[in-house]
């Protein structure tokens, strides 16, 4: 087993892995330093003394609790709405027959290639006209109806045998019940994956929340962090503490459920976008 080729590969992979991890470790390290220790040479990887105080200070300067709350509400709201409505629509596209179905589906497909900035501007204008700036309505509703998840779920529904539906219809089930009790449970893994990535994508979403929020108390984590940067440009210990605060929950979930993330990508070919 100890072939030189394999050892060389390990060396390369470990070196590469160091470059992947180093920024995150450096972030953590800086976040625990005294301001005076940040600029010293040679740089310290392990802070001495360890200043947990930075975190308290960061949280007291910026309402990170509120940012968290906003981010959770926004990401969860979009995810739930999106999965629910998309899977209903996907069921209709995959299993039901009605006039104009294929044309409507084509319309969905047609918009999938259109980049976000195209729809962003009219959506912003509408949201502004409606007086939705700085509301959860603006944060949640526009991103919640994605053609992509409808398309994806439709493909999954199509891969399930139609005989399942037929058998249930014979037993007197309604279409709604077939959707809820037969097809949805069977697409469980796909739906779970879609949920993870929708949530992650929204959690890290930046541009839309940036333009529809003005006041501090409606900012999501990424937007709050960016605003924090605007005010404390060179106070790296605080900025890094804020970044760690924003990252920890997602990284924790990722490390616990990393199998799901990886499986999800290979299932759907999508990511946190």
């Amino acid at each position: 087993m100890l072939q030189p080729g394999r050892i060389a590969l390990h060396v390369v992979l470990i070196a590469g892995g160091f470059f992947m991890l180093a920024p995150l470790l450096w972030m953590l390290s800086t976040s625990l330093k005294e301001p005076g220790d940040i600029f010293i040479y040679p740089p310290q990887w392990i802070p001495d003394p360890v200043v947990w105080q930075n975190y308290l200070k960061t949280v007291s300067i910026m309402p990170f609790g509120r940012f968290y709350f906003n981010s959770v509400v926004q990401a969860a709201g979009v995810t739930v709405l999106q999965l629910l409505t998309s899977s209903l629509a996907a069921f209709a596209f995959a299993r039901l027959r009605f006039r104009g179905r294929d044309l409507l589906f084509l319309l969905y497909l047609g918009t999938m290639m259109i980049p976000f900035p195209v729809t962003m501007i009219p959506n912003f204008i509408v949201v502004r006209l409606l007086g939705w700036i700085d509301t959860f309505k603006a944060l949640i509703l526009p991103p919640a109806f994605s053609a992509f998840s409808t398309f994806l779920l439709r493909q999954y529904f199509l891969s399930l045998p139609i005989e399942l539906d037929d058998a249930a219809y014979v037993d007197g089930a309604s279409s709604f019940r077939i959707w809820w009790q037969i097809l949805l449970p069977l697409t469980g893994p796909a739906v779970a994956t879609l949920a993870i990535f929708t949530f992650l994508g929204q959690w890290n979403n930046f541009l839309w929340p940036l333009i529809v929020t003005n006041s501090e108390h409606m900012r999501t984590l990424p937007v709050g962090l960016a605003a924090f940067q605007g005010q404390y440009r060179v106070e790296w210990h605080l900025l890094m503490a804020g970044s760690v605060i924003a990252l920890v929950p997602v990284l924790a979930i990722y490390i616990i459920g990393q199998k799901w993330f990886v499986r999800g990508i290979t299932l759907t070919g999508m990511g946190g976008r």
């Binding site: 995150l24 959690w203 984590l221 804020g242 970044s243 997602v250």
Partner: peptide, 16 residues
């Protein structure tokens, strides 16, 4: 390890 940056928030990553 190699996948970890994918799940990090881009804003936090850009800051560091």
């Amino acid at each position: 390890v190699y996948f970890m940056p994918v799940v990090t928030s881009l804003v936090a990553a850009a800051l560091v």
